[in-house]
Design a protein around this nucleic acid. Structure first.
Lengths: 144, 144
DNA sequence: AATCAAACTGGAATGATTCCGATATGAGAA
DNA sequence: TTCTCATATCGGAATCATTCCAGTTTGATT
């Protein structure tokens, strides 16, 4: 599966028997519009409010959780930072800048084979989290 | 660098000009002894208490942070779960069981080349986080 | 139009982690 | 050995993203 757009996400909601509400539509728009920013709950909340006045932060959290659990989006979990969300479900690595928090998609030339892992370790992979932390081009340029 | 043992870690403390205290010695012992469990702060706290009676949870947190920042150990960050700590700094993937929380080391046949990434994206890698989430052999066997 | 499971809400609760100000101590210098 | 002081330790309070809760609203099917 590739990057989800608005229609694809709404279609998936229907398939899963989930309701389409104004709040969810606004959250989906915020997710898709800001896909390259890999937005967190706060940003999604702010963006969604612009479209639908009546969205609460509780709903944003509940919805993002629901979407993640149903495989519509991917949750990138962090300890100190806010969690971030990705509508691109294809195999790729996230390059995460330790200075500015930017997340860049890096598509892998040779992905790992879940079959090899299962054969060697008996572990069944359902989810991948590949991150490289460091410094992005812009932060390397900046003096300070 | 490979897996750190007790002496190696104490040596690194000296090199970095950090003090060797009974608390730190106990925390190091707990880290090394339970390396395959990839222990969290609570487990390290409990284990360290057995050796040194006077260790506080605050100190355990401060110490683990200090060690991580100085590259003595690696912090595996999670959102809902306690963070876990790894003394094995070699390139490897962590297989994380969603059911029992077990973390298994899986050494990679063909690691990613930081140079390729720098050339393609201008991003300098300082840290890798490679995780595959799913179900371990034991949990797959269990009925429930 | 009626129905009801699902979704929404604000506020309170959670829980791992960090911060704080005070006290104690390792380790180099005298 | 003793002195000195930057560093480490301590318990308790504060933080903050996220989840929980109990009451209300609403989408979508009949």
């Amino acid at each position: 599966m590739r990057t989800n757009d608005k229609e694809a996400l709404i279609g998936q909601l229907k398939e899963k028997g989930l309701k389409i509400t104004p709040q969810r539509a606004a959250i989906i728009e915020a997710l898709v519009k800001n896909r390259y920013a890999h937005p967190g709950a706060t940003m999604i909340f702010t963006e969604a409010r612009k479209k639908a006045k009546h969205v609460s932060l509780s709903t944003v959290y509940a919805t993002l959780k629901e979407f993640s659990e149903n495989g519509l989006i991917k949750q990138l979990e962090f300890d100190r930072m806010e969690n971030r969300y990705d509508v691109d479900l294809s195999d790729h690595i996230n390059l995460i800048c330790k200075r500015c928090g930017t997340i860049i998609d890096y598509h892998i030339p040779a992905p790992l084979e879940p079959r090899d892992i299962a054969r060697k370790s008996g572990f069944i992979v359902t989810d991948t989290r590949m991150e490289l932390h460091g410094y992005c081009r812009d932060c390397l340029k900046r003096p300070d």
